[in-house]
């Protein structure tokens, strides 16, 4: 069964990426986690994302394309990256989620991947 681990970070946690005093620890923790999860052979897909200020949001309002600077919502924690993994059940997915640095410096939402609708084939 496939799950997406949606890694959310606080701004303070994310800023560690470029703070020379702590960047080593920050990247070290992520490198260790990514190495372990890759080695387990369960990763379907995964990416880290550039910070929210690099985002551009688009929506259609009254048939017109409206493009905005920044992410969709201004929240305390924001999407920093994701992994899609293939594991037997929720508890296994939660165990991997808990190991990620995001669980300590933010939160990880675990969501099952939607199967194609029954008549799509």
């Amino acid at each position: 069964m496939q799950f997406m681990l949606i890694m959310n970070e606080t701004a303070a946690e994310r800023d560690k990426r470029n703070d020379p005093a702590v960047a080593g620890d920050y990247w070290g923790a992520w490198t260790a986690f990514v190495g372990e999860i890759q080695q387990a052979g369960i990763v379907v897909n995964g990416d880290g994302l550039q910070p929210p200020h690099t985002a551009t949001t688009v929506r259609i309002i009254d048939g017109k394309r409206v493009v905005q600077d920044g992410p969709f919502a201004d929240t305390k924690e924001q999407l920093g990256g994701y992994f899609t993994i293939d594991v037997p059940d929720l508890d296994t997915a939660l165990a991997w989620a808990a190991k990620s640095p995001a669980a300590s410096g933010g939160s990880v939402e675990v969501r099952p991947i939607m199967l194609p609708p029954p008549n799509a084939a």
Binding site: P88, D89, L90, D91, T92, A95, P112
Partner: peptide
């Protein structure tokens, strides 16, 4: 949600 029928660790 994929809650498995297994005993917890």
């Amino acid at each position: 949600a994929g809650i498995g029928f297994a005993l917890p660790d």
